[in-house]
Design a protein around this nucleic acid. Structure first.
Length: 898
RNA sequence: GGUCGAUUAGCUCAGUGGUAGAGCGCUUGCUUCACACGCAAGAUGUCACUGGUUCAAAUCCAGUAUCGACCACCA
């Protein structure tokens, strides 16, 4: 290793280790293993997806959990897969078809089109899987699933049939969210409200009975005016009471419509009078129902106007028609004014265009098991982490609306419902194809098609993608049946890791579905990750172009660097602002560890993993101290993992290696690795290095799997053919069998030396002597062991010597410090500028006086002394003594200079 | 409108009642025989604001302000 480059190069190392793990089936779960089972299912990314930072965070956490579980002795299944992502995928293939061949899906027909989608999936669908592998994810790829796998699809149909038979699924004509681009219905969750700068148009409707008099209304959507069937006012609104029951004239196409009274109307808004267009607004639809109003649909499915009676608008796009309609009203003298108006408009999640409220025939679901699952989350049977998400869950459950399941798409699970052919033809003609109009024998709802298939037609629609995802935790494991070994070993799962943005889309629905069909909860813990934002605090998105490409980051910093950098600062549950500097830190950290090992190798390639602290006679305080810190780290990590505090785990791993191990321990024992060092000292240091580093790499492995595997092998910490990722972490104390008192004294002494070294370096720097190596310190007092450690202190401080002289009388003005190893002076030999020194001292005195008075104030407070814990008071007393001592010596120094 | 968060160094963030922290950035000095992806030292805080509880508040409580998310929504 000593001949290797100074800087760690992750690229080849990461690639070859990942291949080795795959080669040896390290990720494959054995359902017959004797170990206890631990499982996670991946939140399946879209097949069309490419890796973004959210995936990196999410999957790194899962990988950490999986690898940690393996080292804790579990048989681990991390089950991966992808989601067919109905609209997203179909849109992509349709676009390709249009761009490359100028064709639409209808030109191809359903069957041919679906073949194209499958081809596309085979060719491009695996990108994100490759990217997850690059990240180091230890998924069991032999069990990769897809939501449209044959067996999985059967589950989807089966669940539909069950819920239908239970009466929870129904078909009906309802107002739904319609996407005029994708030409399909959407669920409420797929509609994203966005603030829009719109215009509010004030227009007037002439009173039929009183020509020349008008009723004024305000609207943002004049293009749907042709669908107006009434004007509504609030019954309590005194201005309009007299008009209720009267008729007003709709300008075009000209018609007389009624004025109705409805509580829903807000007298404060606009003019207090609302035009009612039941076909194109949810609230209007409801008002229409209450008053038995007609429904006039004036838009086509693609959002163009459907109103032959008004030729100048007919066929225009809805937004073009809006302007045209306004112009027409103005011409007619019916437009009063136009106001700027900010409102919320629902956008289609995928197509990113305003959705159109539209009445259409769709399939709906009344959610199953709502009460039981709401309770399970509320009482902690499933723990949400952070637990505030449980409240969000509860809020949604409380206001839950039926789920529009059907999508007018081809790519997806086709609704498992067949209608008798001749019946359909008749009903289609009559436009009354509803279930109510079907006889029992006309309808077949089943997983399989009816036997006399030629007499039946299947429902054209497919199911919402989430209707398949909600079965993910169990449908992925039941390929070989519900009683298979896999299910027994790994179901239900332990942890689910996902973003809070899909709590309604996915998590809550999974809980309900799995509870309903398996009678139990699908997972014990749900860990909600942070949402990653850019430095301006904006959500990362393709359209903003503010999302860094994780692959580029891995090229630059390595997968391990990316993982570690992200994990160390990703706060638990709060949003995180992404800063590339964090990832750079991750890379630098990998390099630091690599170099520590490189240093060790320069002193000999043979590893000392068999080293036992209890058998070594040459242990010095520094050895004992680092062994003890490593034990402490093992315990602290255990606790942090138990609380899912991944940033804390990262921070502790970082601080230990960089601070305790490299800055302190390695610096203190450096001399032992030199050629001239004594054999026993070298052996002790090499042994301690190897056991600590061996343990450390094991602990770090979940965060930096490739680097730790590489170094463990190179350093000789593994048996032949053994993988670090498969090794169980026993976590036994590295100091087993060592006398406790000896450990305590060692820690104490090491800590004292480190503290003293810090103070003396400090002292040197204060006098601008940081770079001088010829400073000779003199210790006036100190423990009897001071001389034993004097050379180490000199080394750490970068001084020539630290000499003990009992009864030493420093010349006036000699700077000194009270350190943990005694009072130490730094004779200046006249190198210091007197005036500069004076001003420095005055400043220092001022500062110290403040501290003294602070401490005195506190100790002078009787209540503090009486009520505070004794140790707190004691600490305060010590502090005061320290400051007072310092103040006295500073004053003495100052006076000696004058 | 409702719910839930956030506000700590120039930046990104830790910090669950007892002396304000890390990394980056900045200043200064170091080609010290592992590492300049490094070493050492340093400067930088009214812990958003106002009250309250307490001997003691960044921390607990109440309110205010600002920012944000989610839900609902006025056409």
């Amino acid at each position: 290793m000593s001949e290797l480059p100074k800087a760690y190069e992750p690229a080849d190392v990461e690639k070859s280790w990942y291949e080795a793990w795959l080669e040896k089936d390290c990720f494959v779960a054995d359902p017959l293993s004797e170990k206890p089972g631990y499982s996670i299912v991946i939140p399946p990314p879209n097949v069309t997806g490419i890796l973004h930072m959210g995936h990196v965070l999410n999957n790194t956490i899962q990988d950490i959990l999986a690898r940690r579980a393996r080292q804790k002795g579990f048989e681990v299944l991390w089950l991966p897969g992808t989601d067919h992502a109905g609209i997203a995928t179909q849109t992509k293939v349709e676009r390709q078809l249009r761009e490359e061949e100028g064709k639409t899906r209808r030109d191809l027909g359903r069957e041919k089109f679906l073949e194209r989608v499958w081809d596309w999936k085979e060719e491009h669908g695996g990108i994100i899987i490759k990217q997850l592998k690059r990240l180091g994810c230890s998924c069991d790829w032999s069990r990769e699933r897809f939501t449209m796998d044959e067996k999985y699809s059967e589950w989807v149909a089966q669940v539909f049939v069950d819920l239908f038979q239970e009466g929870l699924i129904y078909r009906g004509k309802r107002m739904v969210n319609w996407c005029p681009v994708s030409l399909t219905a959407l669920s409420d969750e797929e509609v994203i409200p966005k603030k829009q700068n719109s215009k509010l148009f004030y227009i007037k409707y002439e009173l039929v009975d009183e020509p020349g008099k008008y009723l004024e209304v305000a609207t943002t959507r004049p293009e749907t005016l042709m669908g107006d069937v009434a004007v509504a006012v609030n019954p309590k609104d005194e201005r309009y009471g007299k008009y209720v029951g009267k008729r007003v004239r709709r300008p075009f196409p000209e018609a007389d419509i009624e004025v109705v009274a409805d509580e829903h109307v807000d007298p404060e808004f606009g003019t207090g009078a609302l035009k009612i267009t039941p076909a194109h607004d949810k609230a209007d639809f409801e008002i229409g129902e209450r008053h038995g109003l007609e429904i006039i649909d004036v838009l086509h499915a693609d959002g163009t106007v459907n109103c032959p009676q008004v030729p100048e608008l007919d066929g225009l796009d809805r937004f073009v028609a809006r302007k045209k309609a306004v112009a027409k009203l103005e011409e007619m003298g019916l437009l009063i004014k136009v106001e700027e108006h900010e409102n919320n408009v629902g956008f289609s999640e995928r197509a990113d265009v305003p959705v159109e409220p539209r009445i259409s025939m769709q399939w709906f679901l009344k959610y199953p098991a709502t009460e039981e699952t709401a309770a399970a989350v509320a009482n902690g049977e499933i723990s949400y982490r952070p637990d505030r998400w449980a409240k969000t869950h509860a809020n949604w459950m409380a206001g839950i609306q039926d789920w529009c399941l059907s999508r007018q798409l081809w790519w997806g699970h086709r609704i498992p419902v067949w209608y008798r052919k001749e019946k359909v033809e008749v009903l289609r003609e009559a436009e009354s194809l509803t279930l109510e109009n079907m006889e029992v024998g006309d309808l077949h709802v089943g997983v399989e098609a009816p036997v006399d298939g030629e007499n039946w037609v299947q429902d054209e629609d497919v199911l919402d993608t989430w209707f398949s995802s909600w079965l993910w935790p169990f449908a992925t494991m039941t390929d070989l049946g519900e009683e298979s070994d896999l299910v027994k070993k790994f179901y239900p799962t332990a942890d689910l890791v996902t973003g809070p943005d899909i709590i309604f889309f996915w998590v809550a629905r999974m809980v309900m579905a799995v509870y309903r069909f398996k009678g139990e909860l699908p997972f014990q813990n749900v860990f909600f990750t942070s949402i990653i934002r850019d430095l301006q605090g904006r959500k990362m998105s393709k359209s903003l172009g503010n999302s860094p490409d994780p692959i580029e980051l891995m090229d630059k910093y390595g997968a391990d660097g990316l993982r570690f950098g992200l994990m160390r600062t990703a706060p638990v549950g709060a949003d995180v602002r992404f800063d590339e500097a964090q990832i750079e830190e991750g890379r630098n950290f990998a390099n630091k560890i690599y170099n520590a090992c490189r240093f060790r190798r320069m002193a000999g390639v043979e590893s000392r993993v068999g080293f036992r602290a209890s058998e070594c006679q040459a242990l010095r305080p520094y050895h004992l101290e680092i062994l003890s810190k490593c034990d402490e780290l093992t315990v602290k990590l255990e606790d942090a993992y138990a609380g899912y505090r991944f940033n804390e785990v990262g921070q502790r791993l970082y601080d230990f290696l960089w601070g305790d191990f490299c800055d302190l321990f390695l610096e203190a024992v450096k001399g032992d690795l030199k050629e001239e060092a004594a054999d026993e000292a070298r052996e002790a240091t090499l042994g301690v290095f190897d056991v600590v580093m061996g343990r450390y790499l094991h602990l770090l492995h979940p965060y930096m799997p490739h680097l730790t595997e590489e170094l463990s092998l190179r350093m000789g910490y593994l048996e032949d053919g053994e993988f670090l990722m498969e090794r169980v972490l026993e976590g036994a104390s590295l100091l087993e069998g060592v006398d406790r008192e000896m450990i305590r004294l060692g820690e104490e002494r090491a800590a004292a030396v480190y503290e003293a070294a810090g103070r003396l370096r400090n002292l040197k720097a204060e006098y601008r002597l940081a770079a001088r190596k010829d400073v000779k310190f003199v210790a006036k007092t100190g423990p009897e062991w001071l001389e034993e450690e004097a050379d180490i202190i000199s080394l750490l401080v970068g001084a020539e010597s630290v000499t003990r002289k009992d009864g030493y009388e420093a010349e006036k003005g000699t700077p000194g410090a009270v350190t943990a190893v005694g009072e130490i002076f730094m004779p200046l030999e006249g190198l210091i500028d007197v005036e500069a020194e004076k001003s420095r001292l005055s400043k220092e005195i001022e500062k110290t006086e403040k501290e003294v008075s602070k401490c005195r104030g506190k100790l002078g407070n009787e209540k503090f002394v009486a009520n505070a814990k004794p140790e707190v008071v004691a600490v305060e007393r010590e502090r005061l003594a320290e400051w007072e001592g310092k103040l006295a010596s500073l004053q003495e120094m100052l006076s000696s200079l004058s």
